[in-house]
Amino acid sequence: MPDGLVIVIVAGLVATACGLLGPFLVLRRIALLSDAVSHAVLPGIVAVWLVAQTRAPLPVIIGAAAFAVVCVLAIDALRATGLVASDAAIALVFPALFALGVLGITRFASGIHLDLDATIYGEIAFVPFDTVQVGGFEMARSGLVLAGVVALNLVLVTLLWKELKATTFDPDFSATVRLRPRLLSRLLLVAVAITAVASFDAVGAILVVTLLIVPAATAYLLTDRLAVMVGLAVGVGWVGAAGGYALALPLDSSIAGAMGLVCTACFVVALLASPKRGVLARWLRRARRAPVAPPAVSP
């Protein structure tokens, strides 16, 4: 397989995994959780280094995933007190975890080169070079991992579709009919944490944060149906993956950045030209409305 195709497919897998979960994050108004997770994994990497003195991918991913889960559960617990809004809960937890990681590096690991770029915040351009042999075929390792994550998310979302839908749109009702919104919310958050960590390793933090938020927000502008929204989010993610790769080659720039840029361009197009909710559509509606006479002044 040509390297370009591998890169686009791996990015598309990330887009699929993120597109399955992103709409729920956007609808639950916790979209910035992905940004929080991308910072909160640092102490996990440091802890793995301190305990096992290793930077091998598997233990690092496990350590990072552990702290990502700690991060989302801490945010959930803070939110559950009802004393802080979810945005403030996010903004409280992830700086603390990141600070813990920085403190760990400067205190115990300053001698080695342990930074985010080198360990977990992967670079998508290197994906085709890291391969494993499966049944005689040479496959990209991160592609296999991501295929597993996509399958996991797909199972989660299809099995719990109506539960997730109900708890997202009406938590009080779903608590009344015993759908356990807290448990479902935690499940979703853990899935986000695992997806994020697995994807950081392959494509880098920027792209994961972008793919969790931007395609879902784009889809939210285009449809009122949740199933369509999830499908559109995955589609926009694939458009971003393919378009970004095509854009990055002539620009000679970061592939992940270009993919993010194409996704954002999709969002801008949807914002302006969405048939029902776009800015242009609203202007047209306003213009087409009959010119209103100034209200007559009553005597």
């Binding site: 956007v26 108004r29 979209a31």
Partner: peptide, 14 residues
């Protein structure tokens, strides 16, 4: 109708 946190996220990542 994009909620505030998603708007923040879109601008941030863009």
């Amino acid at each position: 109708r994009i909620p505030p946190d998603a708007a923040t996220g879109v601008v941030l990542s863009g």
